[in-house]
Design a protein around this nucleic acid. Structure first.
Lengths: 192, 192, 192, 192
DNA sequence: AATGAATGAGAATTCATTCAT
DNA sequence: TATGAATGAATTCTCATTCAT
């Protein structure tokens, strides 16, 4: 049975199936065959949309980040919010997007890869969007940091890894962020 | 030509060769054959010492951590040092051990793995040793943290990832740690 | 050169090639490579049809038995034959099917395996089909046996092994069967 | 720790260990390493006593048969026993020797080999010793068989295989033998 | 757009056997 | 007699990728 779909729709379907399997079994242990089989589609079809497995992996990561990016953009477009409020929202978006993909976090020594890539991608994304916000925080005196961007990176990577190790309470994360940024206790927490 | 060595020596040799190749080409792209060839030894010999590639990988990570652990133990055994001094030293050990293995940090989408494993292992190790130190810092009022251990983890993972992305200046790291822990500027830096 | 065939045809081809090689060199000494090479086909293709060597071996045995089963079914479907005639025919089918695969029987200390598997499979098959026949023989008084099914098994296995050891004359087999079943001399033999 | 033993003692020890492992895991899946490890001895030592694995396998089978042979010889040396009594005893010896090695019978598709070899070896042995006995039976009119030796073979192989398939009751075996040889019911059974 | 049989280059692993000590 | 590190060749199995249909 041969089911024809719109290219974009099909591409999306592959991306989602791949993401699911990568989360479940790791990139390496997911074969192109697995993906095709799960979709109920022939192996060759995937190669019609993606030149190689590598390209597919990149596309999956990109696609994931794009989802997060959309939400962030929406948030930041709202005018007139205070620095703390905004920061709180950005943090929230990150953790919500991670919470929606719990399997993403299940890295084991036998199953590395995807998380690391996603993390890096998210971190870059965060930086792109938070630069201005951080600058503002520094200028307005809310933040007293020499390397605000680096600190942001550390927090994203570090908390993500903490998450992987089982610390999933957003309150804890907020407290840690407050302390690291030198904000007074509860500043972020009250945004949740 | 058949060269026999003492098991411990040979095991060490395998471990070192494997570490080198893992760093250079990634775990996945390093075949057991590569390791044997590099050593000028038969493939089977590696299986004489390690039941499988997986076991070898674990052993390599463990061995790496043990090296770092030894140095830390030495440091912490020295009596009578101030909290800041000690903290500075621990931080130093970590970054020195990482600096000795720059290739360890070269993750690419094609080459994931070892670093992630080592990082987790190092993080656990750090916690084990720094617990008391942190507690002391909190008690003595140098640190004002609700979750000192989590903060430590964040810093280790976060800075390690920062390192991977090319930020390798220890001064920057120190400053970031100072800021995150709420120490006054230069407290750690002067230990370097 | 890439020659594509219909799956069923190809599967059959693999089965036959494998059977031939198993007979010739024994299961153990026949590598998946041998089979592929003999077929002029890539190694991977065999794994496309059979998950493992073990599965292939099972399929070969099964396929062999199925061939014999077909012939038996045909025989038994003919109505109105006497007990002795029928029994004679069943015995005949077995020995003909074995005679067609003389190599099957060449077990040596270095080459065990396939025969043993086939024998068991054939024995089960024989029982399934001969049960009614034997029952009938017992009821009609031709056979005076307490365990007709066990006797059948003994005869199948025993004569098969005798065959392996070089006793291949069907007349001898018939005589032995007659004696074991307590039939009068020549009852079966005249069917041949 | 290097324990030196008398050559014959050591050889015997190897034979027994090998038999045990062959029964447990099959010949093929038992490595020379397994044997050495089980004995707590170095691999090389086995090669000191047996040139190759093949030679070891042969020796194991031979050694097993020798054990049975001894018992049979003892039996047959007793003078003045009736034909039926003797036959009963010989049958008994076989089944007792098999019963002492239940694992010998656990053939599976994955684990062929030893049983087949032992069976053949036992069958040859049986023939050697029973020839005279059978001849006597025929001459004295107890047996009415054209190929007494073949019938013996069939019975040994056939019943052994029956045994493997789970029919282990000696009474059933006796009945089958009686029927196959055309002895009157109970002739053998009462010897047990 | 889609199929899926076929490829082929590797990969891990196993093990009987050897040999220097 | 005994050790056990070392060999090396074979073997099973995997999988990204191709291509004729």
């Amino acid at each position: 049975m041969r089911i024809t779909k719109h290219p974009e729709e099909r591409k999306q379907e592959i991306l989602e199936t791949a993401l699911g399997l990568f989360e479940e079994k790791g990139i390496q242990k997911t074969s192109m065959n697995d993906i095709a089989e799960t979709m109920g589609v022939a192996k060759g079809l995937i190669y019609y949309y993606f030149r190689s497995k590598e390209e597919l992996v990149e596309a999956v990561v990109e696609s994931f980040s794009e989802g997060v990016e959309k939400e962030i953009k929406m948030l930041l477009s709202t005018e007139g919010l205070s620095f703390h409020r905004r920061l709180g929202q950005v943090v929230k978006v990150f953790f919500l997007s991670i919470q929606e993909h719990p399997a993403l976090m299940s890295i084991t020594p036998k199953n590395p890869g995807l998380f690391e890539l996603v993390k890096t991608s998210l971190s870059e994304l965060a930086l792109r969007h938070a630069k201005v916000l951080l600058q503002k925080g520094v200028e307005e005196g809310y933040l007293n940091l020499q390397y605000p961007e680096y600190m942001l990176k550390i927090l994203i990577h570090g908390i993500a890894d903490l998450y992987v190790e089982g610390v999933v309470d957003p309150k804890v994360h907020c407290t840690l962020i407050e302390e690291a940024l030198g904000l007074s206790t509860g500043t972020l927490l009250k945004e949740f």
